[in-house]
């Protein structure tokens, strides 16, 4: 549940922030949500990754549909991804996902460092 909320929050808030802020604002959003939600390191990364992977992937997919693949085909020749628009959408989503995940993971580590008690508790539970 926490994972789902974290993912939705990161996706929704960075969707809003990117309307008027630079693309990297999503890293800050992911960081803050990662901090607040306090998921474990890897879970936090996954949540951030998934949020932006889906956000960027779906948006790129929608733009590509409206464009009937004209630009994506050209760009996928340039980058080079053998002219395959779907591959380009996946690469776009993965790059976005990577920074989203890094932001969220950093946030979660930050929280663990700032409030050692909670992390100790977790350690104990694990032990």
């Amino acid at each position: 549940m926490k994972f789902l909320i974290s993912t939705i929050l990161i996706a929704a808030l960075s969707f809003l922030s990117q309307q008027f802020l630079p693309w990297w604002s999503l890293v800050i959003i992911a960081f803050i949500i990662g901090w607040l939600m306090g998921l474990k390191g890897w879970a936090s990364f996954l949540s951030g990754f998934l949020a932006i992977f889906l956000l960027w992937g779906i948006y790129a997919f929608v733009l590509n549909q409206g464009n009937e693949g004209i630009l994506a085909t050209r760009m996928a020749n340039l980058l080079p991804l053998s002219g395959n628009p779907i591959l380009l959408i996946l690469v776009t989503a993965a790059i976005g996902g990577l920074v989203g995940g890094l932001g969220a993971a950093t946030g979660s580590l930050g929280r663990q460092w700032a409030s050692p008690t909670s992390s100790k508790k977790r350690k104990r539970r694990r032990g």
């Binding site: 630079p22 693309w23 960027w56 948006y59 790129a60 590509n64 776009t92 976005g96």
Partner: peptide, 8 residues
């Protein structure tokens, strides 16, 4: 690559 500001 950002679909919000980039080439998309």
């Amino acid at each position: 690559l950002s679909p919000f500001t980039g080439f998309w």
